[in-house]
Nucleic acid binder design. Sequence first.
DNA 1: ATGGCACATGTTATATCGTAACACAAACAC
DNA 2: GTGTTTGTGTTACGATATAACATGTGCCAT
Lengths: 141, 141
Amino acid sequence: MTKRTDIGADLTKNQSLVMSALAGSKGPMSAYSILDEIRSDGVRAPLQVYRALDKLVEFGLVHRLESLNAFVACQHPACDGRKEKTVLFTICETCGGVQELVKDRLSKAIEGLARELEFSPSKSTIELRGMCSACKTATEN
Amino acid sequence: MTKRTDIGADLTKNQSLVMSALAGSKGPMSAYSILDEIRSDGVRAPLQVYRALDKLVEFGLVHRLESLNAFVACQHPACDGRKEKTVLFTICETCGGVQELVKDRLSKAIEGLARELEFSPSKSTIELRGMCSACKTATEN
DNA sequence: ATGGCACATGTTATATCGTAACACAAACAC
DNA sequence: GTGTTTGTGTTACGATATAACATGTGCCAT
């Protein structure tokens, strides 16, 4: 049932609920905080959330941040076309903001490295923790 | 008490126990599997392991693999001098093997990116999941 | 030497994150 | 219409991590 086309459409009920919780959040959310948001819509168990998240990640609509055990909505229209790309996240430890980027130079460096090592990556995790420019300026007073 | 100099020396009791469990393992270990290894030495609670791990990570003797929630001994003599470097891990999903690398091209790409974004990283996580060359050759039969 | 400090330790309890196993329902293929 | 796939719902549990509090131990400044 259902095929994903554009954002939010053609998702199953639980997938839509999880997706809108994430889309409505300005930062990453844990599976359990998503659950809390959508309890009022009838979702009751962690597993329902995790199952929806698995699919959303598979669709490229959501990314998992490994260093936070949390999830964010994809910041591109849909990451679908970028499945093969190397995505990087910056995570500001001050404001909690997350930025998602695809950079050619970085992708190239990773690809080159993998080739050199004869390692076939199926998934890459690149996360920078630190302080974003906005928080730095805010601190300089 | 105690100052770290070379590997294994000048660590506290619990730190040494955790360190040797990790050093004796060919792959990454979870905190709880470390605990199981060193229960016979009198370590009883997760917290004792986590505290030792925190210090060992701080010393650069151990790295945390975020995508596995697990820990590995540093594969360099001691990662100490490399604190500012960008370390990458390849994680083979077939054999469980982990390789730790420092590559200049990658470090440069990350640094350039951070500068461009005016983001100040305090820690970077770069992990490639996939299949190592050895497992690939083993599969080709 | 003793009182204060920093740090490592020990212990219990609990928070947080994630999955196994089973049952049922809806859509689809043939 | 029967079998298959996929989503759903529920209970129970496993795995990962930390809070809070008490104790021990070396150091060193007065």
